[in-house]
């Protein structure tokens, strides 16, 4: 098992004809992901190395049965494309695009929640998901990861790779790796993904990688204490971040005394979640808890 994406994933990509969109779509396909289509209203009828391009999400879903959407279109149009995918009935919408206005994310989140409760959004501003050996949706460099029993959920893309790679070097594989993104209004939170890992029989340990800003880590700490039986190891980036400065991610900002790395680490530790001080230490704690790595 894995979560959210696997052999049954049928992926369609909005923005498939762009430079990054085509590069990563073809990478996903090369990994074995079933890529069934792409969307570009101006290039409908064409194809990207054999992947048919359609005018809109409704047609794409009708023609291909796509159940997973990946959004690669530029920020001004990304939220609209994600909503269109939800309206077409796509169950999982993964938004890679960085730089979407916060209000667009806010309206998208609330509208999908109200009108399309069957759709789950991952991102925006995220690296996507990887279920090693099964499917790759997004920009995670899959060659570093093998199947295993560690579930990873992270607000940062490259930090996801860093921690995943540290785990791989220790001999661990992953059930799934989920990047939830660094924006102020993510479609899925730590809690949403941890809930799925808790239910997933393949996952024996959960690594959550957070960062400064907001209170998603604190909320996860509460949730873990009340609902999660599996061991969780945390990591928080941004201990050295000064107050009031946005550290790259739109959501990574310490406001006054709120959202500091220290407060987050302490909230997790207060609920019994061990927190690594570096990505390496995080992987070491995971190894200590699980003992010798086991292949799934």
């Amino acid at each position: 098992m894995s979560i959210l994406i696997d052999e049954n994933t049928k992926l369609a990509v909005a923005g498939i004809t762009g430079r990054e969109g085509s590069f990563h779509t073809l990478n996903n396909r090369a990994y074995g992901t079933n890529v069934v289509g792409g969307i570009n209203p101006k290039k409908a009828g064409e194809n990207v190395e054999g992947i048919p391009v359609f005018a809109d999400w409704k047609t794409t879903v009708a023609e291909t049965g796509a159940n997973t959407a990946m959004i690669f279109v530029p920020p001004p149009f990304a939220a609209a494309s994600a909503l269109e995918a939800a309206q077409a009935g796509v169950e999982l919408v993964v938004i890679i695009t960085e730089g979407i206005p916060a209000h667009d994310e806010l309206k998208l989140y609330n509208q999908v929640k109200r009108d399309h409760p069957g759709t789950r959004i991952i991102g925006p501003n995220c690296p996507g998901l990887l279920s090693p050996g099964k499917a790759n949706v997004g920009i995670i460099p899959a060659s570093f990861f093998k199947p295993g029993n560690v579930g990873v959920v992270s607000r940062s893309g490259t930090l996801t790779y860093q921690i995943g790679n540290e785990l791989a070097q220790k001999g661990f594989g992953n059930s799934s790796i989920v990047g939830i993104g660094g924006d102020p209004v993510p479609g899925s939170s730590f809690v949403d993904v941890i809930e799925l890992f808790e239910k997933d029989p393949q996952t024996e340990l959960i690594v959550m990688s957070g960062e400064i800003g907001g209170s998603a880590e604190e909320e996860a700490a509460e949730y873990i204490a009340a609902n999660v039986t599996k061991p969780v190891v945390g990591y928080i980036a941004g201990f050295t971040a000064p107050e009031g400065k946005q550290m790259g991610h739109a959501g990574a900002i310490v406001s006054g005394s709120a959202g500091t790395a220290k407060a987050k680490a302490e909230a997790l530790e207060a609920k019994g979640v061990r927190v690594g001080r570096t990505p390496t230490q995080t992987a070491e704690i995971a190894m200590e808890i699980l003992g010798a790595p086991t292949a799934a």
Binding site: S156, L159, T160, Q162, S209, A237, M247, A252, R277, T278
Partner: peptide, 14 residues
């Protein structure tokens, strides 16, 4: 990547 850079600052400080 913002997270990796933040983490890099932390590790340098450590």
């Amino acid at each position: 990547g913002a997270g990796l850079v933040m983490s890099t600052l932390d590790v340098v400080a450590q």
